[in-house]
């Protein structure tokens, strides 16, 4: 058009964007897709490929040819499978404990506490989330020290109990927040209806509150489960001699990357299966 020739290039681009929503959408999406493709999807694909490479035991170099050795090794060695089972067990334990602690706290915050004190309680739950991860684990290392710790002789010492306790402590806010949001959203009507229809509090909790809370708990569990299953630092600090999958990955990534990659496929697969399972609850849209 003849009018367009009088416009500056910037204006012309804008006019084009104005006429073509699809072009606008492409512009908005491209940076995210390129970045996450390059720095997330490609690395994941490379990780998968690397798990099927091998390491030359003399030179320590990676040999880029197909070899199922590491993957078969990881999937058939009882010691690795046991580590995997313990890791999943610990993550499940942490998730269960988080639910157990989050439910009464969130119920108190949403239904018992006064309107005025709710934001303060919420801030009290949120703040520890932003205190350094390492510092919190360190605090538990001091608390649980078998000798000279705060708990003295009553300390359970370093081991699985300490790991599950510390991880529960770390990830608890991730469970409290969605559960609190879930209970808050049903404050009033549903609960009153249950009471009007003669439900006792416990009954109302079991048959009204819990089913409605399932997506919130599922959303929280993505974090408690995922963050626990990939942890290796907490285990190093309070686990004594115990090891989780993360420790195997960490111990091997600089010397035998293909083996570490093969081990890393386990938490990846477990989490993928977990995400697919809870997708049905609609929890993913709440993350």
């Amino acid at each position: 058009m003849s009018v367009d020739t009088t416009l500056t290039p910037g204006r012309r681009v804008q006019a084009l964007l104005h006429r073509r929503p699809a072009l606008r959408l492409t512009g908005l999406l491209t940076p995210a897709l390129v970045w996450l493709g390059l720095f997330y999807l490609v690395p994941l694909a490379l990780l998968l490929a690397t798990a099927f490479f091998d390491t030359n035991s003399f030179t320590g170099r990676i040999t880029y040819g197909f070899s199922a050795k590491n993957v078969v090794d990881v999937l058939t060695t009882p010691a690795y499978l046991l580590t995997a089972a313990r890791t999943v067990g610990a993550a499940a334990g942490v998730t269960a404990l988080c639910v157990l602690l989050a439910l009464p706290l969130a119920t108190y915050m949403a239904l018992v506490a006064r309107e005025r004190s709710r934001p303060i309680l919420l801030a009290l739950v949120l703040t520890p989330l932003w205190a350094s991860y390492l510092v919190k684990v360190y605090a538990w290392r001091i608390l649980l020290a078998p000798e000279g710790g705060l708990l003295g002789g009553a300390s359970p010492g370093y081991g699985w109990f300490a790991v599950v306790l510390t991880l529960t402590y770390l990830w608890l806010p991730y469970m409290v927040l969605p559960v609190y949001a879930g209970i808050s959203s049903m404050r009033g009507s549903y609960l009153e209806a249950a009471a009007d229809l003669g439900a006792r509090p416990w009954q109302a909790f079991r048959s009204v509150v819990m089913p409605m809370l399932a997506p919130a708990i599922a959303a929280g569990s993505v974090f408690t489960f995922s963050l626990s299953i990939g942890d290796y630092i907490t285990v190093q600090l309070v686990g004594g001699t115990k090891q989780m999958l993360g420790n195997l990955v960490y111990a091997n990534f600089s010397t035998d990357l293909p083996f570490a990659a093969a081990v890393a496929l386990l938490p990846l697969l477990v989490m993928a299966a977990y995400l697919i399972t809870i997708r049905r609850t609609g929890a993913l849209s709440r993350l």
């Binding site: 996450l36 997330y40 690395p43 994941l44 490379l46 990780l47 990534f253 990357l257 990846l268 993913l284």
Partner: peptide, 25 residues
Amino acid sequence: SLLVLLPIALPGIVTGIALNTLFTQ
């Protein structure tokens, strides 16, 4: 939406070693 979410929904160690593979290899 899921792609944006994945880096925090999957364990950090998976993200870490995947990126390590990309950068070092």
